[in-house]
Structure formats: structure tokens, C-alpha cells
């Protein structure tokens, strides 16, 4: 019973980061209409920013969180201007290949610069745990969960309550009408893509403490984020959180209860993608 409870809690705590990364991807897919295979690489960049700041100037990851968000927002905007905007009108195949190329390039560039080693950001509180009602969990996962909830709350507030956020949603729903209302589509795209990258970057900073920074750390998150937004319905931001929780719980359960579960965790999100996609396609048929 206690094991089950602990597993469930671990799952929920992991869901925070998943939801952050996946919300970013959902923004890119839903608003800009771009399937960004390089999304996880933005996460990887965030993780490396946190690592470099920590090693270089002893900056606490909590501080680098804001910096990483800013830098990644810029990176996202530049990516949009330089790479995405030219192919907005191109066939979907070209768009996917372009972001896939960006992903491969960023991954291997990081490999060239930093090598394949994993690097952990280890602030003094990294190992501390909280004990509550006979259960224990790490301070870091707990804090990152709380932060994720706060950030996601902020994102939903932005999208639901501010004029700019409503404009973003309007563009997601219809490509033509917002223009008639005086909303500049291109700027919304820019904002959405920048935000998308910033969310991924913030998640990366958290990963650098919980897991590690490495050139390939992001790619798994691209795939997990795909699994989540596919479950939620592509571009449907509202479904991201429950889908992230579902995926994280499934992974936690598999890793605890399946014999030799560690390796199979890697297969969970693919099975989720697979099952959802095929189920959807057959239901639609």
C-alpha cells in the first residue's frame, strides 16, 4: 500500500515537468501549426544554461530559471524568424524535416562542444528530502512540481484572461478572422514560438538538477511531449495536464511493478502514442 502510494506520488511529481514541456509543444503545434521535432533540444539548451551558470558563477538553478526562460525565448524567436517563417507555406513534410534537421544539428553541436558526459547541477539542497505522513520525497522534485504548477497556472491565466492571450487563442482557432480584427498573425506566431521554447527551457533547468544535462537528454522529452499532446489531441492545450499525469503515472507504475521495469519505461510513452494514434485512426474511419 505504501509502495503504491509512493509510486503514485512520484508519478504525479514527474508529471509537472512533462506538462511544462508538452504545453510548449502544444503551443507550437496548436498556434503556429508546426510540429517541432527540436522542442526537446530547447529543453537541452535550458539544462546546459543552468549547468554553465552553476559551474561558472555558482548561480542557483532557481535564478537561472528566469535567465534560461529569457534566453530560450530569444532562441525560439530567432528560430521562428530564421527557419520557421520561410517554410510556413511549404508542405508539411518540409516543415517536419526542417525541425528534425534542427534537432539533429543542435544535438550534435552540443555533443561537439560538451561531449557525451552527463553533467549534474548539484546545489546544496539537492539531496534533501521531506517526510510527510510516513512518505518521503525529494525537495527538488517537489519544488519543481510546485514551480511547474505555478508556471502552468500563469500560462492558463495568460491565455484565458489577457487580451494578448485571447489573441493567441484566436489565431490558433482561425487563420483568417483574427486578421480582420486587427490581430497581427505573424507577431502572435513569434510570441507563441518564443513562449514554447521558453517553457521547454525552464523545464530543462529543472531537469539539470533532477536528472542531468547531456546532449541527448532533450530528445526523450520531445517524444514524451509528443505522446502527451497526441493523447490530449494535437494542439489542445487543455488536455495536456491530464495527459501528462496519465503518462507519468503509467511510467511510475511500470518502473515499480514490472520486473526489470527500468528498461521498459522507455517503451511506455511509445506504446501510449501508438495506442492512441491507432485507436483514433480506427475510430475515425
Amino acid at each position: 500500500m505504501e509502495l503504491l502510494l509512493q509510486t503514485l506520488i512520484n508519478g504525479v511529481l514527474a508529471a509537472g515537468i512533462y506538462a511544462l514541456v508538452a504545453s510548449g509543444l502544444a503551443l507550437a503545434v496548436g498556434v503556429v501549426g508546426i510540429v517541432n521535432f527540436a522542442h526537446g533540444e530547447f529543453t537541452m539548451l535550458g539544462a546546459f544554461i543552468a549547468y554553465l551558470l552553476f559551474v561558472g558563477s555558482g548561480l542557483d538553478p532557481l535564478v537561472s530559471l528566469g535567465l534560461a526562460a529569457l534566453v530560450l525565448f530569444l532562441v525560439g524567436s530567432l528560430t521562428y524568424y530564421g527557419l520557421i517563417r520561410p517554410v510556413l507555406g511549404a508542405p508539411e513534410l518540409n516543415q517536419m524535416l526542417l525541425t528534425f534537421g534542427l534537432s539533429v544539428a543542435l544535438q550534435n553541436l552540443a555533443l561537439l562542444l560538451f561531449g557525451a558526459n552527463t553533467r549534474v547541477v548539484s546545489p546544496p539542497y539537492q539531496g534533501s528530502t521531506i517526510h510527510l505522513l510516513g512518505l518521503s520525497f525529494g525537495v527538488v522534485p517537489f519544488a519543481s512540481f510546485v514551480l511547474s504548477v505555478v508556471l502552468l497556472g500563469g500560462l492558463y491565466w495568460f491565455l484565458g484572461r489577457t487580451r494578448l492571450g485571447l489573441a493567441v487563442r484566436a489565431v490558433a482557432q482561425n487563420r483568417l478572422a483574427p486578421g480582420l480584427l486587427g490581430i497581427e498573425k505573424e507577431r502572435i506566431y513569434l510570441l507563441a514560438f518564443g513562449l514554447s521554447a521558453a517553457l521547454a527551457g525552464v523545464a530543462g533547468v529543472m531537469l539539470s538538477v533532477i536528472l542531468y544535462a547531456s546532449p541527448t537528454v532533450g530528445f526523450a522529452y520531445t517524444l514524451k511531449a509528443f505522446a502527451i499532446i497526441v493523447m490530449a489531441g494535437l494542439g489542445n492545450l487543455g488536455g495536456v495536464v491530464p495527459a501528462a499525469v496519465a503518462l507519468a503515472l503509467a511510467e511510475a507504475l511500470v518502473s515499480t511493478y514490472l520486473p526489470g521495469g527500468g528498461g521498459w519505461v522507455e517503451a511506455v510513452f511509445f506504446l501510449v502514442i501508438f495506442a492512441t494514434l491507432t485507436w483514433r485512426s480506427w475510430r475515425a474511419a
Binding site: 527557419l83 518540409n94 526542417l98 534537421g101 534542427l102 539533429v104 544539428a105 550534435n108 555533443l111
Partner: peptide, 20 residues
């Protein structure tokens, strides 16, 4: 050595943008 795959990423991006 390691990281040579970067060429694939760059070629892919450049080809899509300039050499459709």
C-alpha cells in the same frame, strides 16, 4: 569524431531552405 552527425542536421536545414 563524435558529433559528426551535425552535418546531417545542417545539410537537412540548408537543403529545405535553399535547395527544395
Amino acid at each position: 569524431g563524435e558529433g559528426y552527425l551535425v552535418i546531417y542536421g545542417l545539410v537537412l536545414i540548408l537543403a529545405i531552405l535553399f535547395l527544395p
